[in-house]
Structures are given as structure tokens and as C-alpha cells.
Design a protein around this nucleic acid. Structure first.
Lengths: 244, 244
DNA sequence: AAGTGGTCTAGACCACCAA
DNA sequence: TGGTGGTCTAGACCACTTA
């Protein structure tokens, strides 16, 4: 009969340690940007060797949940605008250069009842509300993307009336102000024809094809927290995807 | 003055070991599907501990260059149709299910001089030749993708006259017959309007938007070896991309 | 039962950073 | 100078596969 050394939980030690570390991040015991205790301290606290503790942290570092800096410490990852751009923004200019969307003009922001799609995609309760943002993003001075963003009102109370227009880097705002960290996202791309309104906003001839990106963003604990539909002009920019 | 234990090469031991393992795979010392010697043997051969040897192999396993099977051994990864599908084929049906392209009808295959784009993208010498394949791929019985594929003739001698039409899983063929393993690829997506020919082949109304996928595939040593332009009907299928 | 990869330890030393 | 992460070892034992 196989017996485990640490009775409750089972499985490899480093997995158990990893899960306990994740739990502390998810429940806010360690906040984004905070430094973790040193590896020696953590190893002692969890009752494992440094090697095992390191193996646990290794997995979290490759998942971008932790950030290590030699000589300084281990930190909970944060959504800097830079990371948000390189990790979550995939439009690159045709010459291969990466460009940051400099400005985004908010076309509308409102609190309203969730549509049925929003309800099912975001796994909301019946009659829940969402905050919806519609905005126009520019690259190299030209409007290229129209975004429709929906987030559960319950998690982002007051976002629609916060005085200032929401910033370009939304994920940093989610994290800093509302304590919601986007951990991963799944995107589905389709080709569509720009609507009349879109041709006007993006300053395009009618009939121009766009790429529609349907993104569902998940929080640390795996719950879906953001639904984003982007319609992008890909005349001078392309969506870049690497297969390793 | 910092001194390294193994004089030539410098850097961490496990990196040096990793590079030596990669070299053996690249130069064909260990072929795809082959088993490597056991970790103990390799550690002894390289003069490092099992821990260090394992750390070296770990990096290659996460890069999909090696495959470990507990109790059996460590193997050089191969391009099975399954892997090719899950790793390199990103179109999924609208209901989220994954589907394999069952058949591909070859529309044309020829040996010809490289165009200027092919020349620069594939880094060919002047006046080099390529083999070009044009084919139609079906999903759930309907034609959905038109692919234009170009590979250097030098590496794939005779591909255009090999009797049988090239199979669906091209990467497996590249690997088994020509000893060329595709390690990674970069894709750039744009929205386009189907040409008259495409609307006919894909059985679509004129003016239908398609997604164009421009893929450049790299071999084990990093040289570009395949240029592939896919034009996809995304009415019932979407291109899926995960951001972790 | 023998051979393989997978986990874990205790301890050593190195490279980097900040005060 | 002291603390942090990064590397490396030698050896033990576990889990899985094959015969």
C-alpha cells in the first residue's frame, strides 16, 4: 500500500508546495509586486529542502505568476504596461516592429444588464450586470482597433463612474484598483467585413475586411472576468503568433 | 578573476550539456524517435551529476525537442500527425471542438525558380529553386483552406515527382523522408477578401472575408525551411490562440 | 527483478545586489 | 558585508515499465 510522506494532499511535495504558494497569491496574502520570503525561509516554513522549494517556484515563474531577480528576491508578477503589451497585445506593424497603442479614445462606458452571451461566457448569475466599454485604439497615430469590453459589475464597482476615462493599459487598472489579475486568455479570430459605423471610425473604404478577435480573460483562480471583442484593421499591421 | 570549471564554453554546466545534446540531435547522431542513453549513462558520459543532466534535459522537454516516458526512457520528439495537429494547426470549429483536416487535395506541385519573396524569406542563394505546392484542405467534409507552400528544392530533392501526392501531414514527411524537422514557426494573420478563384474553390459567395496566415517554419538549427500561405474561411471555424 | 525516469535531501559554493 | 537567488553534487528512495 503506497503511503505518502505528507498525509493530506498526496502527490509530489513540490506540487503541494506550489499549490500552497498559489493559494496565498490568490487569496491576497501576497499581493502583486510584493516580495516573497527568501527561499531558505520558505523552505523552512514548508518543511522542505531548498531544492524542492525552488522546483515549486520554478513552475510558477514559467507561468509568469512569479518573477525572480538574482540577488534581490522573488516577487509576485505585476501587469506593467510593458508586460501587458508584449504578452497580451499581438498586433505588430507590417515591417515586423512592435508598436504600442499610444492612445485609446473611449466611445462609451455604461453599466447595464448582461446580455445572454455575456451571461454564459462570463458565468454570471441570472440578472447580473456588466460594465461595458467601447473604445477606439490607435497605432502610429491611426485608429486601428475598435474594442468592446465587458466585465462583471460585481468585481469592478464604480469603474463606469470613476471620473477619469479608463487608461490604455486596462489590466494594470484591474489589478491595482480592483485586485483582479488576468492570468491567461484565450482568443478566437475570424475574418469579417467592417460595418458602416466601423468604416467611419477607422476611416476605411466600405467593404474592408477586418480581423475580429474574441478574447476571454481569466483571473488567477481561473474564473472568466473579461470578455473583449476587438475588430482590427490589418492593412498595415498583422496579428503575430509564435508556435514553439 | 572568475574562472569556470569546464574551461571552454563557459556558462552554467547544464547549459553546456543542453547544447551538446541539441548538437547531437541536429547533426543526426540521435534521430527522431530514437531513445537517448539513460540519464545515469549520459551523466557519466558528460561528467556531471544526474541532477545537472536532468536540468539540461528538462529545458529540451519543455521545448518539445525531447519526450520523457517514465520507466521507458527519453526520446527525440517526432512529428506524429497528432502532434502536428495539436501544435501547428490552430483552426477549431465554432463549437470549440478540435477537428483534424481529413483530406487535402493537391491542386498543383512544381519545381521552379524562387520568387524574390521566397528568396529573402527562406534565405536562399540567388537563382535557387523551390518546390511549390498548392492544395485545398477540408474540415468536416467542406473545403476551408487554400495553402501555398514553398520549400527549398535543395533540401527536398524529388518531392515534386515522388509519385504519390504529398500526404496531409507534411511535417511528418519532411522529417521521415528528408530529415528536416520543423522546430518552431511564426505566423502573421491578416484579413483579406477571397479572390474569384478562391470563392470558386471554397464554394463561397463573392466578397467573403478570409483570414490569411503567413507562416515561416524553422528547422532544428534555426534556418527557415518552409513558407506557407494559408487562406481560410472562418465562417464556421476560428483561429485559436492561447495567452498564458 | 532489473532498468528507467521522478522526487527529495543536505550541504556546498557561486553570482549578484544593496547598504 | 550580508542576504538573495543560481548552480552543482552524491546519494537515497519512489513509481513505472518490461520481461
Amino acid at each position: 500500500m503506497p503511503e505518502n510522506r505528507l498525509l493530506p494532499g498526496g502527490g509530489p511535495l513540490y506540487i503541494q508546495v506550489r499549490d500552497r504558494v498559489v493559494a496565498r497569491i490568490v487569496n491576497g496574502h501576497w499581493l502583486p509586486g510584493n516580495a516573497l520570503p527568501s527561499e531558505q525561509q520558505l523552505a523552512a516554513e514548508f518543511g522542505v529542502s531548498q531544492g524542492t522549494l525552488r522546483k515549486a517556484l520554478d513552475t510558477l515563474v514559467t507561468e509568469n505568476l512569479l518573477l525572480r531577480q538574482q540577488g534581490k528576491g522573488t516577487f509576485v508578477a505585476t501587469h506593467t504596461p510593458h508586460r501587458e503589451l508584449f504578452h497580451f497585445f499581438h498586433l505588430v506593424s507590417a515591417d515586423g516592429m512592435r508598436e504600442l497603442p499610444t492612445t485609446s479614445r473611449v466611445l462609451g462606458i455604461e453599466l447595464r444588464r448582461a446580455t445572454t452571451t455575456e451571461n454564459t461566457r462570463l458565468k454570471l448569475s441570472r440578472s447580473a450586470s456588466v460594465i461595458h466599454i467601447r473604445r477606439l485604439r490607435e497605432l502610429s497615430g491611426k485608429p486601428l482597433i475598435i474594442e468592446d469590453i465587458s466585465v462583471p459589475a460585481r468585481l469592478f464597482r464604480g469603474l463606469e463612474t470613476n471620473g477619469d476615462a479608463p487608461p490604455n493599459a486596462l489590466y494594470a487598472l484591474y489589478e491595482e484598483v480592483y485586485g483582479v489579475t488576468i492570468r491567461r486568455a484565450v482568443e478566437h479570430l475570424r475574418a469579417v467585413i467592417a460595418t458602416a459605423e466601423e468604416t467611419k471610425l477607422l476611416n476605411l473604404p466600405s467593404g474592408t475586411p477586418l480581423i475580429e478577435i474574441d478574447r476571454l480573460g481569466e483571473a488567477l483562480d481561473g474564473t472568466p472576468v473579461e470578455l473583449r471583442l476587438s475588430r482590427c484593421n490589418t492593412q498595415s499591421h498583422t496579428y503575430r503568433s509564435e508556435i514553439e
